[in-house]
């Protein structure tokens, strides 16, 4: 029971989504490991250092395309990575993804700590860490800004709305970390080469016995930002400022 798991998700880069009216065009969008998840991976690498003999292991639920994330994850310092393959379907229901992650953690039975980001970059539901904890009946701590393991205890510093809270947590445990916890660097060429030799494990989601998740319906549309889009660029600084102030006064906001 000594390994540190980092959960990550292969997501669309939202900057590449083209919104036309209410519809969205994803065809030109690139995919990547979510930015917040890079913090979770880096946190796992760092915690591992204080736990001799432990490994930092990546864990992701994703469709067949998400295989492209595995080498990237390994090049960021992880020792091994698990892919729960959902085949052609993209899982958007937190119930299913969290249960799947928990099922693999249970099977492997060697986790001391599971680190998630606060939320995934695409859905940002901020549900995964507590849900995994519930499924495994392990303790959970969210909004973690600092993290270390001392013996069999996790020491975490949480950043909440009104206070900084220090907590000690029994292991095994699940945490979610804030983006400010560390600053991951781009992988170096050496790490990218080494990643090729590291183990990748795959399991089909259908092999995990998950509880049904039904009764949820959803529909997406592009967010339409209705703004006037008036560009003030002609004339002297004073003239431009005068035009801006007049417009704002007319709108009744100054």
């Amino acid at each position: 029971m000594r390994n540190i798991y980092a959960c990550f998700k292969w997501v669309i880069d939202e900057a590449d989504i083209r919104i036309e009216g209410k519809s969205a065009d994803f065809t030109r969008a690139r995919w990547k490991i979510g930015d917040y998840d890079l913090n979770a991976i880096e946190a796992a690498n760092q915690v591992k250092e204080s736990l001799p003999g432990s490994e930092a292991i990546g864990l992701t639920v994703g469709d067949a395309d998400a295989k492209a994330s595995l080498k990237d994850a390994l090049s960021r310092g992880l020792d091994a990575v698990w892919h729960i393959n959902t085949g052609e379907s993209k899982i958007e229901d937190h119930r299913t993804s969290s249960q799947a992650l928990a099922a693999v953690l249970k099977q492997n039975a060697n986790a001391a700590l599971v680190i998630c980001a606060e939320g995934s970059q695409d859905l940002f539901g901020r549900q995964t860490a507590p849900r995994i904890a519930a499924a495994l009946n392990w303790p959970v701590v969210t909004s973690v800004a600092e993290l270390s393991i001392q013996g069999s205890v996790l020491e975490a510093t949480r950043k909440l709305e009104g206070c900084i809270e220090k907590v000690n947590v029994e292991l095994p445990a699940v945490v979610s970390v804030l983006p400010s916890i560390n600053a991951p660097e781009y992988p170096k060429l050496k790490a990218i080469m080494e990643a090729k030799k590291k183990p990748i494990f795959e399991v089909e989601i259908s092999e995990l016995e998950l509880k049904d998740a039904q009764g949820l319906h959803s529909q997406d549309e592009g967010y339409v930002m209705n703004r006037k889009n008036i560009v003030i660029k002609e004339g002297s600084t004073e003239e431009k400022v005068a035009q801006l102030v007049e417009s704002l006064k007319k709108d009744g906001v100054l």
Binding site: I17, I19, A24, S218, E221
Partner: peptide
């Protein structure tokens, strides 16, 4: 970028 309408 997008809005999701959901019901349960």
């Amino acid at each position: 970028m997008m809005l999701r309408s959901s019901s349960a």
